[in-house]
Amino acid sequence: MLSNLGRYFLLDLLSLFSTSFLSSTILPGGSEALLLYLTQTSTYSLIALWVIASVGNTLGGLTNWLLGRYLYRFKEHRLFPISSTQLNKATHFFHKYGTASLLFSWLPIIGDALCILAGVSRVRLFIFFVLVLFGKSARYAILLLGVEYL
């Protein structure tokens, strides 16, 4: 059985994971504030916080990849959120800059679109996962290093 302190620790880490995950999907949000808060108010190692935030954020990006991959078949449906012209322009943009653009999947709004377009473009899962994990982990690492040295 977890002690009360253990429950709070588990809740903190679950909150960080969930916030990181949700902020990387098409839902609005930002995980940086909670990450910075936990670095100042908890006894967690920066490595543990970095791993949890990075994995949660990457899995949120994977959710967007899945949306792009499987919802694309409904592109002709009248309720599809963007027109075929907009989709063609976005896909052309993604192909122009290539899969390496997924290193910027951590950017607000643009990153969500990149992950969705990677799904639409059928970028291989392994390549997608490695590039997105690297980009998102690097962003959190820079943020945490900034906190550590300020």
Rank of each mutant, 00 (worst) to 15 (best):
L2N: 06
S3H: 08
Y8M: 11
L10Q: 12
L10Y: 12
L11M: 13
D12A: 13
L13K: 04
L16V: 02
S18W: 10
F21Y: 10
S24N: 04
T25P: 00
I26A: 14
I26L: 15
P28I: 11
G29Q: 11
G30Q: 15
E32C: 02
A33M: 10
L34Y: 09
L35K: 03
Y37F: 12
Y37R: 07
L38C: 05
T39K: 01
T39M: 06
Q40P: 00
S42W: 15
T43K: 10
Y44M: 10
Y44I: 10
S45L: 11
S45W: 12
L46R: 09
I47C: 05
I47K: 03
V51N: 09
I52A: 08
I52K: 04
S54E: 03
S54T: 06
V55W: 04
G56M: 08
N57K: 04
L59I: 15
G60Y: 13
N64K: 05
N64D: 12
N64L: 09
W65I: 00
L66A: 06
Y70W: 05
L71Q: 04
R73K: 14
K75E: 13
E76Y: 14
R78E: 15
R78K: 15
L79C: 14
P81V: 13
S83R: 12
S84I: 08
L87E: 05
N88E: 09
K89C: 00
K89E: 04
H92V: 07
H92Q: 13
H92S: 12
F93K: 09
F94K: 02
H95C: 01
Y97G: 01
Y97L: 01
Y97M: 01
G98H: 04
T99R: 01
T99D: 06
A100C: 06
A100H: 10
S101Q: 04
S101W: 04
F104V: 07
W106D: 07
W106P: 11
L107T: 05
G111M: 03
D112F: 05
A113K: 03
C115P: 00
L117A: 03
G119N: 02
S121C: 12
R122G: 06
R122M: 06
V123I: 14
R124V: 05
R124H: 11
L125A: 10
L125N: 03
F126D: 11
I127Y: 11
L131G: 02
V132R: 02
F134D: 02
G135D: 11
K136S: 11
K136I: 13
A138N: 10
R139I: 08
Y140F: 15
Y140P: 00
Y140G: 07
I142V: 07
I142D: 00
L144K: 00
L145N: 03
L145Y: 10
L145P: 02
G146V: 01
V147S: 05
E148I: 13
E148K: 14
L150M: 14
